[in-house]
Amino acid sequence: MKLLHCPMNGTRPISEFVFGGEFRDMPDPEASTDKEWAAYVHNRNGAPGLKKEWWYHGPSGTWFIAERNTLTEEVLRTYLFGQETAA
């Protein structure tokens, strides 16, 4: 069974978690063109590598960030959003 470390609840089975996609900065909707906005809505960084991702621990309702290598499946660290430096 695969495991993931939740910053609030410790190490739990992966089946308790939901993947929320890569962490991305939203462009300013007022300032961006239709084309830029479409790219933000649809396009993804699909190539493998070390990524900052949103994950959700279902039973406790906790959203957090995981830094994960999508080629090797290694998780470097997990932390609550905004607490990157503390982690």
Partner: peptide
């Protein structure tokens, strides 16, 4: 995604 990266092309594809 590895090949489209070679030509700097963005797509919605995820693996």
């Amino acid at each position: 995604p590895r090949v489209t990266k070679m030509v700097d092309l963005d797509t919605p594809i995820v693996i």
